[in-house]
Design a protein around this nucleic acid. Structure first.
Lengths: 342, 342
DNA sequence: CTGAAAGCGCTTACAG
DNA sequence: CTGAAAGCGCTTACAG
């Protein structure tokens, strides 16, 4: 049978209230002797408090949800970038005495269910579309704090943490422009779906302005963020855009596919076409050529996401502005001055 | 305020017991009319049962833990291979009406705490060393079912799901031997730590026997399963083993590093040295040359892990033998007949 | 510094 | 088919 507060209390000859006070570190209310004795018995008996009893009585669960979109028949949409965030979030929560409930969401209505069912103290939303976040009404979360990662939704019910996408794309494009490229393909998902992409597009254009150039001749290719679509685009890139000399892809996984597709088509990278990605996932340093890309502060993102969320959960003010993390360019082998155009 | 059974019961003019019966689908005990009425009110009011109250009263939480080793200052040890399993496990659990608690474990003593604290109905242990699993005594889990993935521990308190490592390595080595290679480096972590590696080594050796050859001239290199150590080994491979013509690495991430290290040393793959990996992670198809490797049934592993665990949790017999999943060889570009030895 | 009482929101026998 | 009672293991005021 489970060891309970009552068992400890009986053995120590005190009330369960006193044991509870010791367990919860409210030592001001208990004599040092009692604390000592109760502590010893707790250790001896291997007492572990019941989290469900505690959350039922205390109305705080010390449980945080990590909510990730999951198409019904799909597994979680775990991109390499998001994956890296998982572990960091768990680690930070653990350090702060919280636990992590990982939940795939196939319909935003399920968010409410996940939140209420376990009386979550808060939740991190990772990978949802801005419009999905926009639609979250007060009925969904009630007073439960919600934190979005990488969202540009301005829904006041949520607070956000994201990278400086605008600057990242601006750096990437400036790097290519500085090398001498003028016709640069912008490859990424539909802007309307993802604010992140829109911001990156704006940053991309801004770099042209910085150089007193126009981005008008630089085509936009709309593709999903997968290796597969990158390969497909790489194969037809020069057929569709013969004068292009570089590509900026909004994600490394896409850029890596692009490089492969270009290779398939006999196009040397970076001699004929330079490629820049975004994210700096591990793989980007493993491919050939190694990918020039924009690095995000993954650890910072996860850590500050947790800290922000727990602040609000702890009664802090809900921040009005999102936290924006710095990015920087990592120059590797996939970019070079243009030369193969002839 | 939270909507409770009591609220629904009052509005429906029945007892909370009846509402409970409807919620839990015990329709045999309730008239169709009542079911209908209660259902409607539940939907209208957006009632969500309290999981903590339920698990406290019912002594079953419908919560499964996914326990992963985590060095204290580290984030979770999330290898690309394990990552892929996460999403699949979550998906399967969700389909079966369970929730997932993700927890990093820095000391096996924490396993008990995680299990008891949340009254988990079971836990999946992913990535622990066999000896760690061996040491798990009855005090750790009590009656809570534990399932290990990829462990060769024979601890009767656990039940296991893993791939056929022996056959996988045998296939890999047979492939190389069939191509004409005779001196093949076996690269992987220490056997004593990881049963999986030992099994792969045995399979590797068996392939030599199958060919009436001896593996004696084939050196063993002990390295950790990281890209970095793969690179280092690749760089010095031919200096240390000038007559080697192939390498079998116990993990793709290691094999990918090896290929890079070999390239750094000016050794062409596969012309001079062939490389075979194990796992068939996504990246393996993205690198140059694409990696020949042993593919595991990841989805099957995750799915059957969950199913086995829930069977036992549901009162089923604890299986004595682990479930062993088939593997197969995926031939890609990193292997070819030996030719560059001269 | 210590404790008795009420209550968190459910489920489990049990009785009708 | 339906319900009153007890209890799961805690915490929260409150009183001493």
């Amino acid at each position: 049978m489970r060891v309970t507060l009552k068992d400890i209390a009986e053995e120590a000859g005190v009330s369960i209230m006193t044991v509870s006070n010791v367990i919860n570190g409210r030592h001001a209310r208990v004599s040092a002797d009692t604390v000592e004795r109760v502590r010893r018995i707790v250790t001896e008996r291997g007492y572990v408090p019941s989290a469900s009893a505690r959350s039922l009585a205390a109305r705080t669960s010390r449980l945080i949800g990590l909510l990730v979109p999951a198409a019904d028949e799909d597994s979680l949409a775990i991109s390499p970038h998001n994956t890296a965030i998982f572990g960091q979030i768990e680690r930070r929560l653990r350090r702060r005495g919280y636990h992590l409930l990982l939940r795939g969401i196939s319909d935003t209505a399920e968010i409410t269910e996940a939140l209420r069912s376990w009386s979550l103290d808060g939740a991190v939303l990772l990978g949802f579309l801005d419009e999905e976040v926009d639609r979250l009404g007060p009925a969904v979360a009630g007073p439960i704090p919600l934190l979005t990662i990488d969202s540009y939704s301005t829904n006041p019910l949520t607070t956000g943490v994201r990278s400086d996408d605008f600057t990242g794309a601006r750096l990437a494009a400036a790097h290519l422009l500085g090398l001498g490229h003028r016709r640069i393909v912008f490859a990424g998902p539909r802007f309307t779906d993802v604010g992140v992409v829109h911001e990156r597009f704006l940053g991309f254009r801004r770099a042209f302005e910085d150089f007193d150039l126009s981005a008008e001749d630089s085509p936009v290719e709309t593709v999903n963020t997968t290796h597969e679509e990158g390969v497909a685009l790489g194969r037809r890139l020069l057929a569709d855009h013969p004068t292009a000399t570089a590509v900026f892809a909004t994600a490394d996984i896409l850029a890596i596919g692009l490089i492969e597709g270009l290779a398939d088509a006999g196009v040397p990278v970076p001699a004929r076409v330079s490629v820049v990605g975004f994210d700096d996932i591990d793989i980007s340093a493993y491919v050939t050529p190694k990918l020039t890309t924009v690095a995000q502060d993954l650890v910072g993102k996860a850590t500050s996401a947790v800290d922000r969320l727990l602040d609000v959960a702890g009664g802090g003010q809900r921040p009005t502005a999102p936290l924006v993390l710095d990015v920087h360019l990592v120059e590797r082998g996939s970019t070079a001055p243009p030369g193969g155009v002839g």
